[in-house]
Amino acid sequence: MNGEVTTSKRGSGLATQLTDLVFLRRIFTHFGIFSAFIGVWEWAGRTGRLNDLIMPAPSAIAEALWRLYVVTGQIYWHFFVTFFEAVVGFFFGGAIGMGLAIAAALSLTFRRYIAPYAVALNVTPGIAVTPIFIAWFGFGWSSKIALAALIVFFPIFVNTLSGLLRTDRDTAELFRSLGASKARTFFKLMIPNAAPMIFAGLKIAMTSALVGAIVAEFASATEGIGILMQRFSHRLDIASSIAVLLSMALMGLFLFIIMEKADRQVVFWKHQDRLDAVSRNRRRRWSGTAAKELART
């Protein structure tokens, strides 16, 4: 495309942003608001205007974070357990959802007869199944994984299905007239065409997988970040409880960023800079092979 635009875009890295006065002023204001907020909160806590049992001061929360992560280090194991449950559940639920969605996209009859069950599953709050899953799978990790899988199923199913159904008729016709096999059409046309929507579903699902794992832990668990938080708040150790909550936010953000990165890798054509990078690579590769063939002849 137009090379100038891309180079100027690539040029606007951190170095140019740091010399940009508007950008600096905004960062400064953000920081100012944040520290003013924390400052007022801390002041209110120190002067006893806040009940320590209800809203601990920021310094107390920071202390709790320090204790959890550095002194005792007990949070890491719980962190890992929940992360594992959410991710494994995400993969199971995602695989089942995508598989059924592919089958439903390819066959109208299957779609028609699976639709009522999918709707029923969607309107049932997945969280309500927790007690039944605990009876089925026990108090360990598997019931949490099952709940996470159940919760991620629907968004992935619906997004994959509507992505696959959006295949352009003319392009499909072109594929057919060029003699592409059904499998070819599926992998080269339908899947890439549906990928942006599938990834939108995966992004929604990832955060809800975490919610599923945490809620199942609330219901019954011995380890995991959800039960850790519940224990702290039952002990009225609100500072530690808020520290755990902040860690959950961090984990949610982390999972979201992973999905965002995966989205940029796979659906590269939807992001201008990634598209440029991939085309540059491909051009290099193709011109390389072209040069080799020239040398051979």
Partner: peptide, 24 residues
Amino acid sequence: RYMKPYVIILEATPRIAIGPLMLA
């Protein structure tokens, strides 16, 4: 503009997880 970062952080937090805190 100045609300945006907080909204993003809150969006990534599993909201239901604040339950035990609300209870306290």
